[in-house]
Design a protein around this nucleic acid. Structure first.
Lengths: 214, 214, 214, 214
DNA sequence: AATGAATGAGATTTCATTCAT
DNA sequence: TATGAATGAAATCTCATTCAT
């Protein structure tokens, strides 16, 4: 199974896609992430996918629907692991220490980001301009994730492992550090040599010291 | 002097702009930041500026030239304070402690971001797609800024105020925290109530503890 | 038997239509009469008929063939009663007086129009644009009907019941009045309260006085 | 001044039209009336007008707006003469007898129809399908005209010149006859030899006898 | 017979840019 | 300098029709 097919499988698990539909989606992802949604023409996508232009519109009523159909399932994937893995483990106490939780969280996100990079780029680019996406993102991803992050931080604050500070501020600082790593790693300098384990450890330690009881 | 005029003055200090040109630029900034460069039509800008379509092309040969003429001066402004104020002060030792430097750096950036927010949005959106802008950004902003940040970190590491760690990693962690604050403050939740001084202090302390000698 | 089935039976007496074909025809009649032939898409008809797009083209080679297959049988129906009932009766003298003939004629037409209203709308709309239909209409409907009307008028003129005037002019005036009633009744104001018998009588009397010997 | 220019002048009296706009309108009228609105493509209009396709959309935001801009002024023209000439004359009593009024009314409409024939065809074709036009027609043309016709009939009924009968029915019968003549004359058989004066007189007499006191 | 994915020609519409005034 | 009509290339989208299943 090719790398592209893995991506498709991950994003569109259950959906039955025709061969042409798959080609359209892959072509769209490539073009959207390279040139941006607005600057990509449907004729270009059709050509890249080796498909007639009309075929695109048989499957997606509008160009925007194509965009949404690509980005929306990503959002589900992004919260998935949080809900399924991380938090349950935290609340069921398999992570005695914050550090363990942090390491797992970063690692988890890291895997997805690596695979979905182009789609994530599209999502980040288009969220400010597509109200439909923004709303989905805020309601499904941001709120759910954030709520749980706050819970987890509270949990560790109660255990005395984290400094007393408004949970919102603590969350902001921790999340910034994590995303700072991921963005540097996969978006700004994907081509540098990275000792991932070490950098993750540094990030974890940074957060730990920054937020721990002094 | 209206807020818009302040923006123009800050961005186009010495340039002599006709009245129409000012209106065009303000209209373009508004539309570009709301809908994106590619999704904004010149006719829309003309209408918003109260100007004939042709007039835009009298001043800017192409639509892209208009974009560049807006974003390029921002870049100059962004490095300006670094070079002129912060670093000189550091190298001339007016900031004895890292914290003082950090506070000043955040404050400085904060002021500019507040004023230039729409233009910054445009810049961030378009850098990935406009090679011209990307190059300018990397060479003029990123490199220069980064070089100096590294210098400063080294300086404080040598003073023993900062933990031993590759300067690049330290820089990444510090910068992430600062940008995390700025982005949360001005982009994600501009409408929340913010106690700026307190949050800046928290961010500074977070970085300090995260990076200080243990 | 539903109203739709009555319509189909009347239009396609002997033809054997499959279930799908019936649905297609009813859907086409509805859409064509509501939005016009050119503005109706085959996909829309297919959806309304609950049928695959391809199925339409299995039964009708082209969209126009579908139109013709609907309108053509109507034309046969329209001349039918004229030939079969009215005129024979006139020529066989069961209608001693013009008035009786007129009453019967209007009543006859009235029934058909009521049932076939949507198809008649389609016919009237498309005759100007479809040479095929126009020719059929002129040769089969208009000429035959008109010839017989002229005969009948001549008959009553000879009896001295109608004023001397070119039969063509007399025909025009009588036909205008009849169609004026039918159009008002069924197309312009179908929703008003109509005392049909009274209005038909008024129309008959109007024609009688207008055309009778003075 | 060519015949076309007369048409334009009559329809668009005060509007300032560019040369290209005039060509577009004339081409549109020709095509719409020949093939119908829906079956006419804008590219066809552009070609016939000797204009770039974009030019059409510079002046009319949509194809439908072009249609409306052609048909709407016709409606004004159609009621114009009624209001300005006929009725005032009736109510100011220059027409002592119904016949004189009828003759004038037919004559008046006749002139306009002759000139505006293609536009009238378009109007009649599209009124059933364009709610915008239908509404305009009903509110501006039908209602105003009808109200005044009713007034006039009442006036002559009161004078004892017309039979007692619901004014609505009387109106229907009279109008049918008039339109029957106009439609026969200009739409069905424009190419036959017509002795207009005689046929108008016949129509008038027909209505008179049909509706007069017996 | 029936389906519905696929097509490609063409329809409507948009838009950056030009140019005569 | 400013205008805005005009352009034509290209963008999005529609649709009648075909064809493999």
């Amino acid at each position: 199974m090719s790398e592209d097919e893995v991506l498709l499988q991950q994003l569109f698990e259950d959906d039955k896609l025709t061969e042409k539909q798959k080609k359209i989606i892959l072509a769209a992802i490539e073009s959207f992430s390279e040139k941006g949604y607005a600057a990509t023409s449907t004729s270009e996508i059709a050509k890249k996918a080796g498909v007639a232009e009309g075929t695109i519109f048989r499957h997606y009523k509008t160009k925007k629907e194509l965009l949404v159909s690509i980005v929306a399932p990503l959002m589900a994937k992004l919260i998935g692991p949080f809900i399924v893995n991380d938090f349950h483990k935290v609340l069921d106490h398999p992570y005695e220490h914050v550090e363990d939780f942090l390491r797992a969280a970063i690692q988890n996100r890291s895997d997805i980001i690596k695979k979905m990079l182009p789609v994530i780029k599209i999502m980040m680019q288009e969220i400010p301009f597509q109200p439909e996406l923004r709303e989905q993102f805020l309601e499904q991803v941001a709120r759910k994730t954030f709520d749980r992050i706050l819970l987890v931080i509270k949990e560790y604050q109660d255990k005395g492992q984290l400094i007393e500070m408004p949970t919102l501020s603590a969350a902001r600082l921790a999340i910034s550090s994590i995303f700072g790593y991921l963005i540097s790693r996969y978006i700004f300098f994907p081509d540098s040599e990275w000792d991932d384990e070490l950098e993750i450890e540094r990030t974890v330690q940074f957060i730990m010291h920054g937020l721990s009881q002094r």
